[in-house]
């Protein structure tokens, strides 16, 4: 008996336990809504949920890198806007090919990540402050470049571009699975491998867990932090392209508030804001939990004000649960 409780006590401290607990919440929600809500289980609705979650999942996957390395990125939503608008402008006004525009959109994300990373490491700003600043800088750039106007790609002017965009944004493979969902899935898989299986991933965990120990073990802590920001930036760049594609239009306000959605998804998914702990899968599960809640509450006719209250409370409960577990076992 003692053995079993001891094993359980130890198990409770593992990241796996956290992941399983989050997965159970997701499954529980799924079951509740399946039973209680008439349309919830319809294929259309389930695909709608995955479509809604795709962009958040992409950003949250990248955000998990930044949180695990011990930083935070408030500029994520602004990077989404900036990459989206630049992509749209290049396609509409400069006749760039689709591939080139997407590549440049991703490069914008990388550059934003490098800039964030350097302000947090070499300039020694707290990530919260540094990215609060770049949040406005990137957003301002977005509005400046587009002169505050939406950049719409019209069928009549750019039929091919519009066609591909529609495919990326809302197209479906085999008429069922949305392309955006596949993109999100690929991102999650690749990032999960990087985080768990590469030296960069180990260095990110080590840096976030104990910066001084990492430094004394010969890890380049600054480089690691900047690389985490680059991963975050690139996912935001990709998300920006996805948003633009879905609307076939670059919006100057696209992505506003996404950073908080992504951070919330990560936290609900068990990523520690103190760094050193978390998984990409957890971040995706967190995003799914939030999307499923919204969807289920919508179908049940719960108004959006109540939805906010409920999601906020879930966030608090999730974190309080972890803190409580930690205090009890330490």
């Amino acid at each position: 008996m003692n053995q079993i409780t001891l094993f359980y006590d130890n198990f409770k401290k593992t990241p796996l336990f956290k992941l399983i607990s989050r997965l159970s919440i997701l499954i529980l929600l799924f079951l509740i809504f399946s039973v209680s809500t008439f349309n919830f289980l319809s294929p259309d609705n389930l695909i709608t949920i995955t479509l809604q979650v795709a962009i958040y999942a992409v950003i949250a996957s990248g955000m998990s890198f930044i949180l695990i390395v011990g930083a935070t990125d408030l500029s994520a939503g602004s990077i989404v806007g900036l990459s989206g608008i630049i992509c749209a402008i290049l396609l509409r006004d400069y006749g760039f090919s689709m591939a080139a525009a997407i590549l440049i959109g991703l490069i914008i994300g990388i550059l934003c990540g490098i800039f964030n990373g350097i302000t947090c490491t070499y300039l020694r700003l707290l990530p919260f402050i540094a990215t609060l600043g770049t949040m406005w800088v990137f957003r301002g750039l977005t509005q400046l470049l587009a002169n505050g106007q939406p950049v719409t790609i019209r069928n009549e002017n750019h039929p091919e571009v519009a066609e591909i965009f529609r495919f990326i944004g809302s197209g479906r493979i085999g008429g069922i699975i949305p392309v955006a969902v596949i993109v999100a899935l690929l991102v999650a898989i690749v990032l999960s491998i990087i985080l768990n299986k590469t030296v960069l991933g180990r260095n990110i965990f080590a840096t976030g867990s104990n910066t001084e120990a990492a430094r004394l073990s010969g890890i380049n802590v600054r480089k690691t932090t900047i690389l985490a920001f680059i991963v975050g930036g690139v996912t935001c760049g990709l998300a920006g392209i996805m948003v633009t594609a879905r609307l076939t239009s670059g919006q100057v306000n696209a992505g506003t508030g996404y950073e908080l959605e992504a951070i919330a998804a990560c936290v609900i998914g068990g990523v520690s804001l103190a760094g050193g702990e978390g998984t990409v899968v957890g971040a995706v599960i967190g995003a799914l939990i939030m999307a499923m809640l919204r969807n289920g509450l919508n179908l049940n006719g719960v108004n959006s004000f109540w939805q906010q209250i409920i999601i906020g409370l879930i966030l608090i409960i999730a974190v309080a649960f972890d803190t409580f577990q930690r205090r009890k076992t330490s």
Partner: peptide, 11 residues
């Protein structure tokens, strides 16, 4: 101690 608490012994 100069260990990363969240990592495994091997890591």
């Amino acid at each position: 101690f100069n260990l990363c608490n969240d990592l495994t012994v091997a890591d």
